[in-house]
């Protein structure tokens, strides 16, 4: 199910403002790639262009190509709705649907995209998704209780279960642990390690230890100043970025000597 991402000369604009400039990057299937960089450097914006979620804001547009196994996400006639069912997303703050039970939350995306689901198929998918998100044992006795009653970390894993239930090719995570306590963070990081066996995972994080722990490759983004577009400065194996970066800016950032 996992697919490769190739980005070619991507520029992202909000109206006339260029937020991200000239990104070229290739992400291998079945890997975890981390985006790091200071706030406002465009890494979240860039992440959102990978499933066209940035288009939710009026005036947002891109130039360039994002290829998913060779298919351009921005090609003519490509429906952003279809793109998003292939490229799942997990957000900064856990956002299960508050009015839905745990069960309905997990199945929410599936019910959208596919035809009727038989009860046994639904139960099977529910269990496999929740197991895939390391949540099954904690919630199996209260599947009909509201998802908003879980702890923050459980809610975030519920959101991951909801994302993988759709069987996407890629999972994007936008600072998935920034609202979680250390123990929940550890649970989600363990999960990310398991997810890469089946999915291409791209994660934005402000926590450099996290990037070092979970990712195979790391991309460092930076901006020259406020009002300037964000750029991809360096992209390499995580160990290289953290131990032996080729760019001075990268070294300053990962060693904490930034700015």
């Amino acid at each position: 199910m996992s697919k490769r991402i190739d980005v070619k000369d991507l520029n992202v604009y909000y109206g006339d403002f260029r937020a991200v400039e000239g990104v070229n990057i290739s992400v291998a299937p079945r890997s975890v790639t981390a985006f790091i960089g200071p706030s406002g450097c465009g890494k979240s914006t860039f992440l959102r262009t990978l499933n066209r979620m940035h288009e939710v804001l009026p005036g947002a547009r891109v130039e360039g190509q994002v290829l998913l196994d060779g298919d351009d996400l921005y090609g003519p006639g490509v429906d952003p709705v279809a793109v998003r069912s292939h490229v799942g997303m997990v957000f900064q703050r856990p956002n299960p649907f508050p009015t839905m039970s745990i069960r309905d939350n997990v199945l929410a995306g599936v019910k959208l995209n596919s035809k009727r689901l038989s009860k046994s198929d639904a139960d099977e998918l529910l269990e496999s998704s929740l197991r895939g998100a390391n949540l099954w044992n904690e919630v199996k006795d209260r599947l009909d209780k509201p998802g908003s009653g879980l702890s923050g970390g459980q809610q975030q894993r519920l959101c991951i279960a909801r994302a993988i239930a759709v069987k996407p090719d890629v999972i994007l995570m936008d600072e998935p642990c920034s609202a979680l306590d250390p123990i929940s963070t550890l649970a989600v990081e363990d999960l990310i390690n398991e997810l890469k066996e089946n999915y291409t995972v791209v994660i934005v994080t402000h926590n450099m230890q996290q990037a070092a722990r979970v990712s195979d490759k790391t991309a460092f983004f930076n901006i020259a100043g406020t009002g300037k577009p964000g750029k991809l400065i360096e992209y390499a194996d995580t160990s290289v970025i953290f131990n032996n970066p080729s760019e001075k800016a990268t070294e300053d950032y990962v060693s904490g000597r930034f700015g």
Binding site: G88, M89, F91, F97, P98, V166
Partner: peptide, 24 residues
Amino acid sequence: LHEEAALALGATRWEMIKMAVFPF
């Protein structure tokens, strides 16, 4: 957050309204 959750699952705008806006 909830609107984006629905959209990110591949909901159309009307489906997003049914999933996120109406229940809220």
